[in-house]
Design a protein around this nucleic acid. Sequence first.
DNA 1: TTTCTATATCGTATTTTTACGATGGAACAA
DNA 2: TTGTTCCATCGTAAAAATACGATATAGAAA
Lengths: 115, 115
Amino acid sequence: MSKTSPQLCCTLNISGTDQEKMIKMFKALGNPIRFEIIKFLLTHPGCITGDIVEYLPIAQATVSQHLKELKRVGLIEGEIEGPKTCYCLNTNSVNDVYKQLQNYFATHESILFPL
Amino acid sequence: MSKTSPQLCCTLNISGTDQEKMIKMFKALGNPIRFEIIKFLLTHPGCITGDIVEYLPIAQATVSQHLKELKRVGLIEGEIEGPKTCYCLNTNSVNDVYKQLQNYFATHESILFPL
DNA sequence: TTTCTATATCGTATTTTTACGATGGAACAA
DNA sequence: TTGTTCCATCGTAAAAATACGATATAGAAA
């Protein structure tokens, strides 16, 4: 390619795009603790912070920090109920990312599924 | 759940498992530069390091570092050809991760695809 | 009211990531 | 041989992530 079509430089000016959202979600899922939280919420929808803290081998403050990050990127939602907070997956966001991935695979099918 | 089934603590002792591999790939894909490299390889299979360096707005050493990381987690492969290195996606690994994701979605279909 | 419970946030220490220039080595060209 | 190109690695600086104890706050209970 160096000697053929000189492709324009990639600028990475993609703030707010779907791709950027997907990258943030990948990053969030790329941490073992946060991945376990997502898995836990799959099997325990609507549980409270304390349940997750009890399940994980880390301090409560750290769990809270991870929950905040998962909420920030849109993977989960928290609903305050009195002194507790109920967390559940944001299924819409999760589905959106999954659809984007499916789209990537469909678009580059011949490369990703070689005969 | 706090008052019902006391679930065992998650130990995160998952070294070498498929899940750990997937988490590492998520982490690798959770960086904008590395995501762009993967996208570039989708459209420019078999290109050399210099092509990627030319495309991205960062230094050659940094690109090389990211390529090393993508190779480490198994998303790409590099083949040395004389003084150059040809990179391409590891389609097997990519497909494996995709299949795992499909499995997660299928297993928790009722939660992830609410009516 | 006071006390307790649940959880978010603060402050901070440690580790990891990211980026760069400089260097080194391997293969090709002259 | 010498010089050049390509690219990985080294050394390092800056930024971000991760973790914890301590604290604050809001609601429930006493």
